[in-house]
């Protein structure tokens, strides 16, 4: 295991790596532009957006936020333990991180099921078109993040593992990006209209 110290103050070496941060910025800008478009439509049809927002279960949204934040907390601890060379502890935190992600997916699936059962689809109105697209794209990121977590955890626990701190940090940065996007989606979709 290579744990060479990285100089994070160097412009080219942010924690997680410069390429991961470029992806994070692109994702934030893309989701951000969609949220601004959502707010523009919301300001044009405030009563439709208010009625539609009331059909969302904000408790589900809040619990899912707690799942993702808890998962992110365990991820940060996993990186910390990896740097301290406590591989077993780090792996345990990786697994707890994945559990948070899986719980998020389960609750989101229940929420989607209720919406489909109530006849709320992407065609229902502008609000729900944004709801399905934004939460759906976010969900794909969470699934992708889980695959990266499983892969990284498997790689670091192998005998003669060549997993480095930079690899674990890049994996963590992607997972935290899912948190960041959700922290923008949750209030705008579930709370403010």
């Amino acid at each position: 295991m290579n744990t060479v110290k990285i100089n994070y103050k160097n412009l080219y070496f942010p924690p997680g790596g410069i390429l991961m941060w470029i992806i994070i910025f692109l994702e934030l800008i893309t989701f951000g532009m969609a949220l601004i478009a959502f707010a523009i439509y919301g300001s044009e049809e405030p009563s439709l957006f208010h009625q539609s927002r009331l059909q969302l279960n904000s408790t589900f949204g809040a619990v899912n936020t707690v799942f993702l934040l808890t998962s992110g907390f365990f991820m940060a601890n996993a990186v910390h333990e990896f740097k301290e060379k406590n591989l077993k502890k780090s792996s345990l935190y990786f697994k707890l991180t994945m559990l948070g992600g899986v719980l998020f997916l389960i609750l989101k699936s229940i929420e989607y099921y209720h919406k489909i059962e109530s006849g709320i689809t992407i065609d229902s109105n502008t609000f729900f078109a944004f709801y399905w697209l934004l939460t759906g794209f976010h969900l794909i990121h969470v699934v992708m993040g889980l695959v990266i977590l499983v892969w990284t955890n498997h790689g670091m626990m192998k005998n003669n593992s060549d997993t480095e701190v930079a690899d674990v940090e890049a994996c963590a940065a992607f997972w935290h990006m899912c948190d960041l996007i959700w922290l923008l989606l949750f209030p705008v979709l579930y709370l403010i209209f």
Binding site: Y8, K9, L183
Partner: peptide, 29 residues
Amino acid sequence: VNLILVASAFKFIIVAFQFMELKKANAFW
């Protein structure tokens, strides 16, 4: 609404700076 959005922005900054360790990064980031 303002309170909810400001609180969300604050949460975003905590995750980025503390969990993602951006506090250690170059000022540019």
